[in-house]
């Protein structure tokens, strides 16, 4: 199981701008849920609170009000039921690919043969078994992010939380990573909540899209595309794809003109 529920989650930041204290409402009573095994995309203009929502779900930031639950358990700090994939992978530069995947497992208390076997299994899952001895700077951007995904998956979380995981990659690599993520999802059946600013990516990957604006959920949109989606190039040609994309685009466009 891996069901994530946001119930009236609010988050305020206090900023000091030029000597003046400003209160920023990053999240304002955000409510939505992610069903078990589902992929949900959080999309919105920058500053809309989508990354904050993800960080609150991870437990890296505490909510000022409301609560996030995973399978009914309230999130209080980080936990092994959630795995985080960071925007720029954030691998530890002094460890090689395998050791980076092992890091999370070690923290979880896995030792001995199980440690290296499990890490190898997940490195293999992302197609990097042969690059296990490379250090991060010897990996391309796409490969780094795959290690980041393997590291998060290795602790066997119920939910994978991803913060613009492919945002820093070039278009070609991004497309192959999207296909790969769907493949990994098909094999692991993990619940995935991911933040993106890429409209195409949201529609291609997600089952549902949460459109955010100024700290609020503006709308939750169902993506009427069936699974599996092995050929994303083909999906792009479907009428359902362009219609959904246009719907989301309108919502984002309205949000920007209002601002």
């Amino acid at each position: 199981m891996g069901e994530v529920t946001f119930a009236e989650v609010s988050k305020q930041f206090t900023l000091r701008v030029a000597g003046e204290v400003q209160h920023v409402q990053a999240l304002d009573r955000v409510s939505f849920n992610v069903r078990d095994g589902e992929i949900v995309a959080l999309i919105g203009p920058s500053g809309c609170g989508k990354t904050t929502a993800l960080r609150v779900a991870m437990g890296l930031d505490a909510a000022s009000g409301g609560r996030v639950t995973v399978d009914g358990n309230e999130v209080r700090g980080c936990g092994y039921d959630r795995g985080m994939v960071f925007q720029h992978a954030e691998l530890l530069p002094w460890l090689n690919a395998l050791q980076n995947v092992m890091f999370g497992l070690e923290m979880k208390g896995v030792r001995g043969a199980e440690l290296s076997d499990t890490a190898m299994k997940y490195l293999d899952l992302v197609g990097l078994a042969d690059s296990r001895n490379r250090r991060p700077h010897q990996l391309s951007g796409g490969m780094k992010q795959r290690v980041g995904i393997a590291r998060a998956l290795a602790i066997d979380p119920k939910v994978l939380l991803m913060d613009e995981p492919f945002g820093a990659l070039d278009a070609q690599t991004r497309e192959s990573m999207q296909t790969e993520l769907l493949d990994i999802h098909a094999r692991t059946k993990k619940t995935i909540l991911f933040v993106t600013h890429d409209l195409d990516e949201a529609v291609l990957i997600a089952d549902r899209i949460v459109v955010m604006r100024e700290g609020r959920v503006r709308e939750v949109i169902d993506v009427p595309l069936s699974r599996p989606r092995p050929d994303l190039g083909l999906v792009r040609g479907l009428r359902e794809f362009s219609e959904t994309r246009y719907r989301v685009w309108r919502l984002l466009h309205d949000a920007q003109t209002v601002q």
């Binding site: 890296l60 700090g77 936990g79 985080m84 954030e90 890091f103 979880k108 602790i155």
Partner: peptide, 21 residues
């Protein structure tokens, strides 16, 4: 970088372990 420390936190590493590792 703060994000490297958050990697440790996201795997529930205690502060002493974050300091050492």
């Amino acid at each position: 970088p703060k994000t490297l420390i958050e990697v440790g936190k996201s795997f529930v590493a205690p502060n002493a372990v974050i300091l050492r590792r």
